[in-house]
Write a protein that binds this DNA or RNA. Structure first.
Lengths: 157, 157
DNA sequence: CTTGAAAGCCACATTTA
DNA sequence: TAAATGTGGCTTTCAAG
């Protein structure tokens, strides 16, 4: 899926990653290309999956979800068949923003948002209750958010 | 900052959170409002900070950053003056996507991207080397990414 | 809601590698 | 030859009156 990005592509991506509503005309000026060329490249980057999504990032506090919570999950057995239910519940739970299988003492790391602790408790119940394959899970709470994005540093090329 | 969001705002946000390039006309159809009303509301949501940013989300693999790495950091002393340098380096380090001050055994949780382990090592050096206030840090690596977004569930209202 | 301005989109001719 | 660029016209979207 690596689409052989040249320096024009990278320059375009660097801009769109910060502000994807910027007019193609302006992007074209900044990267020294014609607007049409920029459009074609953006289209290609979309189709090839380099641009995975175009999203508005919302303020968690403004929409009533001030809590960011981390859950480290330890399983009894990592066998695919035994984790299937858990993975399905994670996928279905919209409060789970991020979920990674990780190395180390724990098996999964989840990033969850909630409006309050009561709601968080309901989420954990839905995720874990009754699953015999969950050995334990460890909750920690974000006291402060110093940085939050999915920005990727791009090579200068 | 809480801008008193009504059900129209929430419906608009739900759409833009998933695809902020959708024409306002289509958004208007979906939420049963006139395009002009949608435009005014989007403008207001931007200005009030409910919409914090409009970004293209890139594929980490496609841009050569397949590694997602988590660092739990334990400090010697959490005093503001002593953590200032660390926080500044985190802010400057573009490979650090997310950084939270957390409860529990560790003080900070960082989410970092890298192209390979060598690059990761260089990052940790820049972040931690020579800082007497860093007690220890613990690295774990994402073996798989089941979910990755900053999507926020919105109340139905 | 209507209207002018701007942005996005597409076809064609041209260039470059 | 094949792929990519720029120009220009056309349509849609945006944004103000």
């Amino acid at each position: 899926m690596n689409a052989e990005l040249d320096s024009f592509d990278l320059a375009i991506l660097a801009i769109l990653q910060r502000d994807n509503l910027r007019p193609q005309r302006e992007v074209a000026e900044q990267v020294n290309l014609s607007p049409a060329a920029v459009q074609r490249r953006i289209r290609r980057l979309q189709d090839s999956g380099v641009i995975a999504a175009n999203t508005a990032q919302l303020s968690p506090e403004a929409v009533g979800r001030p809590l960011t919570i981390f859950i480290e999950v330890q399983l009894v057995n990592e066998l695919d068949a035994l984790t299937q239910g858990f993975r399905a519940r994670v996928a279905a739970e919209t409060a789970v923003q991020q979920c990674y299988a990780v190395t180390g003492q724990t098996d999964y790391l989840l990033v969850v948002t909630a409006g309050d602790m009561q709601e968080y408790q309901a989420i954990t119940q839905r995720l874990f209750d009754g699953d015999q394959n969950i050995q334990r899970f460890n909750t920690s709470i974000a006291l402060a958010t110093l940085k939050r994005s999915l920005h990727l540093p791009l090579p200068a090329r």
